[in-house]
């Protein structure tokens, strides 16, 4: 039920979002139409950080409660993290090619996102090489915790380097945006928020089924 509601909500918000991004929002003066990718890019980035935070919560809660549901929660959040951060990096590259003239540069924000992506991927490599379910949960939770503690340090370290990335336009230091652009971004955030919640909900349900299947396999093998 909850999953259906989330599915309907994300579909119902995503369609107007797409319309607003491509037709309602005004064309940016210097960059032109390519700037529209920004309405995808920023919510994707936020999704990446939300995933990092959820992985932190999942890891911490597993270590405190020893309940495998928290390990599944962390792992599913980390999976969404890989998807969102990777998509964010790709949209950033598509934007950078015409605007900066390059696909990639080791600029602060790019590096930060790349490192976050690498930590998520390292987390999955670790899980893949831990066959025992309980050990996998315990050790990957320790790593998840250590990895997410690393994110603020990365942020400080990378921000002390001079950067090429446009400074945030929203927030205390930014100059603000056109109100129509602002509305589009807000709607886009809402749509991506529902999409994230829907994907996480589905993924958690699948993870639970996967675990049941593993258990049933064990039972079957034990009786053979």
């Amino acid at each position: 039920m909850r999953s259906k509601v989330l599915a309907v909500l994300s579909l119902a918000t995503m369609i107007p979002t797409l319309y607003m991004i491509f037709f309602y929002a005004p064309t940016e003066v210097t960059m032109g139409n390519i700037q529209r990718i920004f309405y995808f890019h920023v919510p994707l980035a936020t999704g990446g950080y939300v995933s990092a935070f959820l992985l932190f919560v999942g890891s911490l809660m597993f270590l405190l409660k020893h309940d495998l549901k928290w390990d599944r929660f962390g792992a599913c959040a980390a999976e969404l993290g890989v998807v969102f951060v990777s998509a964010q990096i790709v949209t950033g590259m598509i934007w950078a090619k015409p605007v900066w003239g390059i696909w990639w540069t080791f600029d602060a924000r790019l590096t930060l996102q790349l490192v976050l992506d690498l930590i998520f991927i390292a987390y999955f490599m670790l899980r893949a090489y831990l066959p025992d379910r309980e050990k996998r949960a315990k050790l990957s939770s320790v790593f998840g915790l250590l990895g997410m503690v690393d994110v603020p340090f990365n942020y400080f370290a990378i921000y002390m380097f001079p950067t090429q990335h446009p400074q945030p336009v929203l927030g205390p230091a930014g100059g603000g945006v056109d109100p129509e652009m602002g509305t589009t971004l807000t709607i886009s955030f809402i749509a991506f928020g529902f999409l994230y919640a829907y994907l996480l909900d589905r993924r958690l349900a699948i993870a639970k089924v996967e675990e049941e299947i593993d258990y049933l396999k064990q039972v079957v093998f034990a009786h053979e």
Partner: peptide, 17 residues
Amino acid sequence: RMKEVMLPVLQIPLTVP
């Protein structure tokens, strides 16, 4: 299962800062 090979995979991203 990878033992030693796993360490750089875990350590290099975390020691970036």
